[in-house]
Write a protein that binds this DNA or RNA. Structure first.
Lengths: 231, 231
DNA sequence: TTGCTTATTGGTCGCACACTCAATAGCATC
DNA sequence: GATGCTATTGAGTGTGCGACCAATAAGCAA
C-alpha cells in the first residue's frame, strides 16, 4: 500500500510539475545514478503515475539529460558562483579545490563519471555534457582571467589552463566508485598542484587546509544494491 | 537465418569453451561496452545458446568482471610489456604516452570509463578494477624505478608518481565519449608534461612526436545505437 | 560397437523497462 | 453552480533481460 486506497489527484501547473519532475530526477541522478531515472522510479518519488512522467517527457532520454544539466548547473553555482561577492581569485580557486577534491564532492564526481560514460549511448545526454563542460570551463576560465588581470596568476591561455585543471579533477573523480580514500595527499592534491604550476604560483598556495573535519566519515565506496537493472 | 535449420552441436572442452566465452565478452566490452555483455549477445557471437553461457557463468556479473580483466590485462601487456626487450625507461615512457593518448587507445579509454562507472553497482567488477589499477600502477611504477636507478628520472616516491600519471590519463580518457579530438595539444600532452615535472625531466622530453599519421581518422565520437537497453 | 559422462540445447518463468491512449477528474472561468 | 479545458490516471503492449532445468547428443573409453 503506497498510501490511500483511493488516489487523490493533485493537479499542478505544467511548469511547476515539470520543474518538480526534473528536480526529482536530478536528485535520483546524484544519489543513485542516471540509469536509475526510470518512469517508475521518478513517478514513485513524486507519488504520481508513470504515465504522467511520460506525458512531460515522451522520451526518457530527454529527462535524463535535463536532470544531469540541472544537477550540474546547481553544483557549479555553489562551486564557482557567477558573481563572487568576496575574496580574491586565489581564494576562490583554493576554495574550489578544497571542495572539488573533498568527500562532499563525491556524488558529483560519480555523476560526471556516470554522464561521461552514458554519453556513449545517449546523444542528447552527450550534448548536455558538452554544454556543461563549456559552462564549467568558462566559469573557471573567468576566475583565472581575473586573477591574471589582477597579477595573481600568470598563464598564456586561461581557457587551456582551465581545461587542464578540469581534466585532472575528472581523473580523480573517476576513482569515486572504487575507493578514493586510500590515495595519498600528493595525489588528491594533484589538481591544486597542477593549477599552481600552470598559473605560476608557489607550491602549496592553492593546497587545501588539512580538511575541515579530520575525522570525516570519508564516504566508503558502498555498493548501492541493484540499479542498472539487468540491462 | 543464422545458418542451418538444424543446429549442429559443437562440443568443446570446458577450458576451451570458457576461454572462448571470455574472449568474446572482452571483445564486446571493448567495442560496445560492458553493459552489452548479455547472455544472448555473447551466445549469438559464438553461435551457441544463451543457456550455455549461463552454464559457465551462473552470474553474468562474473563474466563482465572477467571480460574487463582480460581486456585490460591484454592492453597493459602491449602498453607496458613486463620484460622490455629494448630501449631505456625514458623511451618506454615516451612510447607509453604516445599510445595512451592517441586514438588507438580510445576503446580502452572508454572501457576504463565504463568499468569505473559500472563499479558503482557491480561489486565483483569493482574488485577487478582495483586489481587492474594495482597491476597498471605496479607496472608503471617499475619502469619509473628502473629509470630512477639508472639516473634518468628523479622522484621521491615512484608509486605515487605512477598513480599521478594514471590519474591524468584517466582524466583524458573521460572525454573519449564526448569528443576528445577538439582538445589542444597542451591538454592532450598534460599526462606527459605531468610526468616530466614529477620525474624532474626537461619539458618536451616525453612529448609524443606530432602523431605518426597526421591525417588519422581521429575516431569521431559516433553513437553506437542502442546498448544500455532501456535500463 | 556399446555405453556413459557431460557439454549443450530448447523452452519457460518472472521481472523491469519505455511507450501508448482512451477515460477520468481537478479547477479556473463564466 | 454549471461548463470546458487539460492534467492525470489506469490499463495494456511489446521488448529484453537473467535465471532455471529437464531433455538431448557429442565424443571418449571400454
Amino acid at each position: 500500500m503506497t498510501s490511500s486506497v483511493q488516489r487523490k489527484r493533485v493537479r499542478k501547473s505544467p511548469d511547476d510539475r515539470r520543474a518538480e519532475i526534473v528536480g526529482a530526477a536530478a536528485t535520483v541522478a546524484l544519489t543513485e545514478g542516471l540509469e536509475c531515472i526510470t518512469l517508475r522510479r521518478i513517478a514513485e518519488q513524486l507519488d504520481v503515475r508513470p504515465g504522467l512522467i511520460s506525458h512531460y517527457f515522451p522520451a526518457v532520454e530527454d529527462l535524463v539529460a535535463e536532470a544531469f544539466g540541472s544537477a550540474a548547473t546547481a553544483e557549479l553555482e555553489t562551486l564557482l558562483p557567477a558573481d563572487p561577492h568576496e575574496g580574491s581569485p586565489l581564494r576562490h580557486l583554493a576554495r574550489f579545490f578544497a571542495h572539488a577534491t573533498g568527500p562532499a564532492y563525491d556524488d558529483m564526481s560519480r555523476l560526471w563519471l556516470n554522464a561521461r560514460h552514458l554519453s556513449r549511448y545517449r546523444p542528447v545526454l552527450s550534448e548536455r555534457v558538452l554544454a556543461q563542460e563549456a559552462l564549467w570551463r568558462g566559469r573557471l576560465s573567468g576566475v583565472i582571467e581575473t586573477g591574471v588581470r589582477q597579477g595573481e596568476f600568470r598563464t598564456e591561455d586561461a581557457d587551456v589552463t582551465a581545461l587542464q585543471i578540469l581534466v585532472v579533477i575528472d581523473g580523480l573523480a573517476g576513482h569515486a566508485n572504487t575507493g578514493l580514500g586510500g590515495h595519498p595527499a600528493a595525489v588528491i592534491g594533484l589538481a591544486a598542484s597542477t593549477a599552481e604550476r600552470e598559473l605560476g604560483l608557489p607550491p602549496g598556495t592553492l593546497a587545501a587546509p588539512p580538511a575541515e573535519a579530520p575525522d570525516a566519515p570519508a564516504t566508503p565506496p558502498d555498493t548501492p544494491a541493484a540499479p542498472p537493472a539487468e540491462a
